[in-house]
Write a protein that binds this DNA or RNA. Structure first.
Ligand code: FES
Ligand code: FES
Lengths: 153, 153
DNA sequence: GCATAATTGGACCGAAACAGTACTGTTTCC
DNA sequence: GGAAACAGTACTGTTTCGGTCCAATTATGC
């Protein structure tokens, strides 16, 4: 369905909320603040900590804190942290595709991957917080897009 | 992992290959030509037929043919045909998100969805065939991943 | 210095979606 | 009438995802 995992959704919510606090924040507090179930938000924070997006402080009086300001964290970064690398197809530069020799379009998917990655990198968490979408997305237009109503059926 | 299904990959390969033939082409021929297993390519073609991307001719001497020229079929169209709608998060306009009231970022994901959809719509199957990437992607620049202009505020 | 409590870290398990396969039915040409 | 090819449906195995539980670590308080 080309939808990112719910964990990523939660991650963005938690990060934005975390960006509004200066102090270190614990998982239960963040859970109460966001409405996300405690174990889940804990897991998300854990992953984000391993990826260096948030810094963690273990032990009592511990918690999490943003490693970078909210404006410098792009959606792509969060997605890559949670969902793994953004590579739409299996036949990327690695190449475990079985039909690579015959398919004709060698590694042409990389172009698509780059396009998506750019689109995702252009949006930061600060843009999500308050929808001050600048005109940075102005270059992205939707062109024609055929195949709507099942022309032949 | 934010990767589209393998079926979609196969669909693009099959469609590009189909675009190189003027005649109707059968599933087994297409399978041999692309290296995709027969049953799988048949399934993909079937789905594409229901979505109106290819037209089918039943009976003996039947087969499939492109419904539109290769240049008019965007990647987004194929993805939507196979994988369903492109909606990255569960909390889109529908709104079955459980944390909508507390999360703060109302329906801000729609912006992200639109960005991806546009990026995907900007690439056609013809662009995949021979990497004649026009300057259509000129608008998609990689904006210095973290810490871009941060034009918000 | 030691016990205690709070909090993160990593591992485990069940569930759901996905990919692939097989079968049966309908349509068309020879 | 027979054969070839698409159409639709159903089933099964696999993988990934979402969620939960227990162990390691650190600050606090006595
Ligand atoms: S389908 Fe994977 S390389 Fe072409
Ligand atoms: S997380 Fe779904 S609406 Fe905010």
């Amino acid at each position: 369905m080309l939808k990112l995992s719910k964990l990523t959704d939660y991650a963005v919510v938690a990060l934005v909320r975390l960006g509004q606090k200066e102090e270190v924040t614990t998982s239960p507090v963040l859970s109460r603040s966001t409405g996300i179930p405690e174990p889940t938000v804990a897991k998300v924070l854990k992953i984000l900590a391993t990826q260096g997006i948030v810094t963690s402080q273990r032990g009592a009086r511990g918690g999490y804190r943003l490693a970078h300001p909210l404006e410098e964290i792009s959606i792509a970064t969060v997605i890559q942290a949670i969902d793994g690398p953004i590579s739409l197809t299996t036949c990327v530069d690695g190449g475990d595709c079985d039909a690579r020799s015959t398919c004709g379009l060698g590694g042409q998917w990389d172009m698509v991957n780059a396009a998506i990655r750019n689109a995702l990198s252009a949006i930061t968490l600060a843009d999500m917080k308050n929808h001050t979408v600048t005109d940075r997305l102005g270059g992205l237009r939707t062109p024609s897009m055929p195949g709507g109503p099942a022309a032949t059926a």
